[in-house]
Design a protein around this nucleic acid. Structure first.
Lengths: 192, 192
DNA sequence: TCGGCCATGTAACCAGTTACATGATTGT
DNA sequence: ACAATCATGTAACTGGTTACATGGCCGA
C-alpha cells in the first residue's frame, strides 16, 4: 500500500488539508497515483489515529474552515522504513489490451473508435505534462540542474522533474503504441 | 472489471481449466493482466453460475482430473457488450514514483539499490518478451503480416502480436526511464 | 524422502470505487 | 437563480491479496 506514503510525501513537500491533497492527486501526484477525496479523508483519519500526522484547525473567512495536516515524527519514520523496504515491480493492468485481443472475436469497428478515444486522452495528457514541464522546470534552476551547480535544496525539485519525465515517457509510449494498434486494426478491419 | 473478460478472451483463444488459466496469467496474458489462482477459481464459479461458461469434467491419468471451461453463448454476448462499452483510460499506479519523490526526504542510497533492482526486472521482462516475439511471431505468417496477404484467421494472431509489442514498448520505456532516474540520483546522491 | 508440479478450493482481510449527504461562498 | 468551488464526511459494495488447506504423481 502506498497511498499513506504518497500522502506523507505530499505533506512533506507542503502541509495541507484533505481537500488540498485531493486536488494534488488530480494534478502532479496524479502522474503516478490517484485517490478520491473519500479515500483520502478515510486514510488521513487513520494516519491521525496512528500519530503519523498532526492536525491544526485553520479558521478561514469567506470559505469553510479547514484542517491542516503535517507530517509528525512517527509518519516520517514510517515513510523512511517504507522507503527502505523493497517492493515488487508492479505488473500492468490494461483493460484496453484485453479489448484488443478480444476484438479478434468481435466486430473491430467499435474498437477502432475506442482506441482513438484513448489515444486522444493520452495525447492530451502528454501535452499537459509538457506544458507543466515548460512552466515548472525551465529557467535559472534548470541551469543549475544542467551544469551540476545545484544545492541540496534542488534535490526535491529534480526528483519531481524526473518523475514527470517518466509520465511524459509513458504518455509518449502510449500514443505511439496506440498508433501502431490503429494501423494494425486498419490492415484487416475495413477489408472484411 | 476486466478479469471476467480477460478470462473469456483466453477461453475463446483456447478452452482450459482454472489451473491452466492461472498459468496463462503468468505468461502471455500477464503482459496486461494478472490474477492468482484463488481469484480465477472464484470468478470462474461465478461465471459458471451466470451461464457465461460451460464446464466439462476431464478425467486424466497420472494427474488429477480437471474441469475444462469453455465460453457459452451468454459469455460471448457479455464479452461483446463489454467490448462495445467505452472504458475510461486508466491512470497509472507507480509505487516506485512515490518512492522517488520521497527520496528527497531520506537517504537516497537505499533508493538507488531499489531502482537498480526494478531496472533489472524490466530488463528481464523485455528480454523475455523479445524472445517470445522471435519464437511466436517470425516465420511464414509474419511474411503474410508484412505483405498484407493474410487471412481472417491471422487476425487473432496479429492482435496478440500488437499487444505484445505494447508490452515490449512499455518495458523498453521503463528501462530507459529508470536509467534516467539513476543518472539523476547519481548527480546529487554520492556528493552529499 | 523431499521438493515441485498438477489441481482445486475456503476464509479473512484490505484497498479502492460509487453513491449519498451537507452547507457556505463566489461569480455569471 | 444556478453552477462552481471549498470543505468534510458516511455507508455499501466490489475486487484483489494473503494465508490456509488438501492430496496425488513424478523425478532427483
Amino acid at each position: 500500500m502506498a497511498l499513506e506514503h504518497a500522502i506523507l510525501v505530499s505533506l512533506l513537500e507542503k502541509p495541507g488539508s484533505g481537500y488540498e491533497l485531493a486536488r494534488r492527486f488530480e494534478r502532479s501526484i496524479g502522474y503516478f497515483w490517484t485517490a478520491t477525496h473519500q479515500q483520502i479523508y478515510r486514510v488521513l483519519k487513520r494516519m491521525e489515529n496512528d500519530g503519523w500526522v498532526d492536525v491544526r484547525d485553520v479558521p478561514q473567512q469567506g470559505r469553510p474552515d479547514k484542517k491542516e495536516y503535517s507530517v509528525a515524527g512517527l509518519g516520517r519514520a514510517a515513510l523512511s522504513s517504507w522507503l527502505h523496504d523493497p517492493i515488487e515491480p508492479e505488473s500492468v493492468r490494461h483493460d484496453l489490451a484485453v479489448k484488443i485481443r478480444g476484438a479478434a472475436f468481435d466486430d473491430p469497428a467499435a474498437l477502432i473508435r475506442e482506441v482513438q478515444r484513448h489515444r486522444q486522452t493520452h495525447r492530451n495528457r502528454l501535452a499537459h505534462y509538457l506544458a507543466g514541464e515548460a512552466r515548472d522546470f525551465t529557467g535559472p534552476e534548470a541551469e543549475a540542474e544542467a551544469t551540476g551547480t545545484e544545492t541540496p535544496l534542488d534535490a526535491e525539485r529534480e526528483l519531481q522533474h524526473v518523475v514527470l519525465r517518466g509520465g511524459i515517457a509513458y504518455e509518449r509510449m502510449m500514443t505511439d503504441w496506440l498508433d501502431d494498434v490503429l494501423a494494425t486494426l486498419a490492415r484487416f478491419g475495413p477489408g472484411r
